[in-house]
Design a protein around this nucleic acid. Structure first.
Lengths: 296, 296
DNA sequence: TAGATTGTTAATCGATTAACAATC
DNA sequence: TAGATTGTTAATCGATTAACAATC
């Protein structure tokens, strides 16, 4: 059976490449928005709002109303022209489409801070997800409890997955343990994995992996923040980086001929940046400290 | 100043609609992948691998190699034909592009389980992010410590943001407090927000919000899991939902004329599904339990 | 030089959006 | 009927990918 690496980033279209691209013709981008609509509708439902227009609901969900109507059109014709959508009815239809009218037992593997946080997360239970078990490999953690559930030993993984028909696993282990845990989950029969460890998991065909990466989101924010801070277009850029092809090629050759290691080259580039910073070309308190990103 | 709702889902193109769509011509989808490449490169760097081809690096990052080369082409020509990319040099260039060669002080607001987990998260410190302060409104939490840092009271927010030049805030409060916390952060000068609360935040122009939603990812997995389980295309679908237009319209009219509340309609639809399940049309242990998704 | 691999082109695919006919 | 709002069309935009010329 072929093993395929999980699909990349979580921000673009996770997993779109792996599976037949759509299930029953619903675009992946639409599927990813259904939970947003559902949340907005649930809030309206709690306020006993009977109907809502695409315009109102789109505003509540933070999307364009044309997009929302297009999204709903993939599900069917659940609105009434001139009136809008019936809140309760739409809550039900979306829930059903997402599979939330079923009960989904999940196991959480790795009960550190994040595992604890997830075990306690209200958004799971309220949407059909039930924590079937908390698992950890550390004997000091096994036997403690979280969210009212005992933490059990990894050895029980297979029997729990089988007896409780668990098809979804959540990995909150340290990165080094993630692939191994993933393999055991898959072997035991789990076919959907939510991975919080910063590790690219390899799984057989037919297994879905989604990844939540806490630091990636922060890095994307930093990228944009950097752009806001200094508005000079080339503020951290070396002149050579934008030079015409031949010049760049010559420079590359020089760097290479210098026989310097990549580290030397990187350090050199950093030094250049710092020199430019000293000349006041860089924005906002930047210190050019590479120690954090350049392993020694 | 105009206030715009944050951009919707985290899965498609977060925030692409709000800002001028690209900063210095780098597509949003590419920016979102840079952290993945960076992680893969860092791992190679730690193993002292000097160079890597686009094919190898793409495999490590879990993406298509053509996509990787295209992504890198937006940054400049950092490779060598016939050879590949110098690992260290590329680590530096991507770090710089993402703004990770700067020091980014962040505040974390809401020190529950998730706040704790984030405070301890290694992936932050190692990428230029520094936790400037942990904040909470609960007097019982204030004064405790997490990850070696004291939890301080919300009242100190403004002075901390100002004195430490904090431009990034992380919200890990309960949903009800998120908008209020967000407003205070923005007022104090924060211009990038990472929101873990399941709340659509409204912010002024010029402020970026990214959202990490733990339950949305699980819901997307459930959608696909449902499709795997029962492969009959229409397994949870009422006959009417796929009927030709006129029939659907008539049915809608009937539902409406029945004067039933949306709840009644939803319950009716659910009953229909359960009847179908009884006939064996539904997959995999589904119990059709609506209590979790249908607020009373 | 011969083999390898990048950087770029161009075709394709999917997602977004405004506009409006259909219809409540 | 008149006003409102959906569902759909079609244009546009952005992202992906295979293929290959450039070039190390």
């Amino acid at each position: 059976m072929g093993r395929s690496p999980q699909s990349s980033s979580q921000t673009p279209d996770q997993g779109a490449a792996r599976r037949p691209s759509r299930a029953r013709g619903i675009p992946e981008a639409t599927v990813a928005r259904l939970p947003l609509y559902l949340r907005a509708l649930t809030a309206l439902s709690e306020r006993s709002v009977p109907t809502v227009s695409s315009e109102e609901l789109a505003a509540a969900a933070g999307v364009n109303s044309a997009k929302l109507r297009k999204d709903f059109s993939y599900l069917g014709s659940y609105g009434t022209r001139g009136v809008g959508y019936d809140v309760e009815y739409l809550v039900y239809q979306i829930s059903r489409e997402l599979g939330l009218t079923q009960d989904w037992p999940v196991v959480i593997v790795g009960i550190g801070n994040l595992g604890h946080a997830l075990a306690n997360y209200g958004g799971f239970a309220s949407r059909g997800f039930r924590v079937a078990a908390l698992l950890d490999a550390d004997p000091n953690v096994v036997g403690t409890s979280a969210a009212g559930l005992p933490v059990r030993h990894m050895d029980e993984l297979e029997s729990i997955v089988e007896s409780q028909h668990v098809s979804i696993g959540v990995i909150t282990t340290p990165p080094g343990a993630a692939q191994q845990v993933c393999d055991r989950l898959v072997e035991a029969g789990v076919t959907s994995i939510l991975n919080f460890a910063p590790t690219v998991l390899t799984v057989p065909d037919g297994v879905d992996v989604r990844k939540v990466d806490l630091s990636i989101e922060l890095q994307i924010l930093a990228f944009h923040e950097q752009r806001k801070a200094g508005e000079e277009p080339d503020h951290t850029e070396s002149v050579l980086d934008r030079a015409p092809g031949p010049v760049r090629a010559a420079a590359a050759k020089l760097r290479r001929a210098a026989g310097g290691s990549g580290k030397a080259r990187a350090a050199e580039a950093a030094a250049k940046d710092q020199a430019e910073q000293a000349k006041g070309k860089t924005a906002k308190g930047g210190e050019g400290d590479l120690s954090a990103v350049m392993p020694a």
